[in-house]
Write a protein that binds this DNA or RNA. Structure first.
Lengths: 223, 223
DNA sequence: CGGTATCCACTACGATACTG
DNA sequence: CAGTATCGTAGTGGATACCG
């Protein structure tokens, strides 16, 4: 962790925070991932060695404490919450372009699974099946099993009857998830369809709380 | 600029913002430095090649525009202002410890010179002379010449009569500047003294607007 | 499940010098 | 004043394997 040799608190803060991955680790912790392997699921391209190193650095800096196998934010760490939200809003407003490699279905499902609004989902077991038509290979199909106020991501068929299917491009699903377009707008042109009984088709959007940055107003398009 | 391959707007934002120096360049731009060499004065340990590269990256990303030799923030860039302020407040609260190499008198004077409250300084020319008793060598003495609603930093004697002298440790002056202690508290134990006519001694603190993070409340000390 | 260890490739960065 | 050019290295981070 290299120093700036400036007394400015922004510089002192960034000595810690501007290292690669650090802010994303904090984002995961703020999303209530507390176990090492849960953190890894939100950071699949980060090597375990590096994640371990960052967690140590954050703990030395006093933002994180390891407590019985659980990484917990301290007050100092938790106070970065509003800042990370603001960065998310800023990013949603100003960094709109997503490359194809940014579209990782594994991350999307992991993200969705932890933002299920269990009060909006019918009692019993519900299975949401995804088919991403622009994805080839084994990551084309996903299942989200929601039961007993918990949600599990499956990358192969769990065998339960499917309640509703989301069929269409991963890109469009991500755009909806990020709030680039509304559910309504995103379903309009057929790039994405919800397939299932009418009442489920109608209510599915309410099963998930979109990310906090999703409601960020996008700047008026430049002419 | 290496990618995270995540669609999350925080990740997309940090791809740009977490590179070394980038946030400090933005800080300088938000402080209204717009010329290349003014930016350098606020970033003395950054090589000109790297500063140039960062400015290019920021301009490609749409945060900065070069306009007749002046680097200007776009709307996107200016919207990072509140975020940088929040990071400054967070840093002031949680990263209190300053190493000796963090105490750069050149940066302190550069910072002070641009936060002079000209309405609080008497008309005509005022010269504030600094002697930092914990600094050896040529950076021990500084002069701040305030006249005609402008302020200039001199690292050798400009020859004008000195209006008031600030005499004491650089560390204490930085602590006051950052808001770690008040002017009053910082002057109490004699580590720093203001030497000059009584009315000037009294009013000198008002000649400067402390940094925006200076008023940040420090967390209660941990026992 | 929850990490460490090892190794290599790369490249970003710092230092310095130089130019229009 | 406003940058480029060049060069060497430190060290980060990616991949993979392995351990308790």
């Amino acid at each position: 962790m290299s120093a700036y040799y400036q007394f400015c608190p922004v510089a002192k803060a960034m000595e810690l925070l501007d290292e690669r991955w650090t802010m994303l680790v904090l984002r995961e912790l703020l999303m209530d991932s507390r176990r090492f392997n849960d953190l890894r699921r939100g950071l699949p391209r980060m090597s375990p060695a590096l994640l371990s190193k960052r967690l140590h650095q954050l703990s030395v800096a006093g933002l994180v404490r390891l407590d019985g196998g659980l990484y917990t934010l301290t007050d100092a760490g938790r106070e970065l919450g509003p800042i990370l939200e603001a960065i998310g809003v800023w990013g949603a407003r100003w960094i709109g372009e997503l490359g194809d490699p940014d579209l990782d279905p594994k991350l999307l499902l992991w993200d969705m699974h932890r933002r299920v609004d269990h009060d909006a989902v019918p009692d019993g077991r519900s299975v949401v099946h995804f088919e991403f038509t622009d994805v080839a290979g084994p990551t084309r199909y996903w299942w989200l099993v929601i039961a007993a106020r918990a949600a599990d991501v499956c990358d192969d068929d769990p065998g339960f009857p499917v309640t509703v299917t989301v069929h269409g491009t991963l890109r469009r699903m991500v755009e909806i998830w990020r709030g680039d377009v509304s559910w309504q707008g995103g379903l309009r042109d057929g790039a994405l369809r919800i397939v299932g009984p009418e009442h489920v088709r109608r209510s599915l959007p309410d099963w998930f709380a979109l990310a906090s940055y999703a409601t960020a107003q996008r700047p008026a398009a430049v002419s």
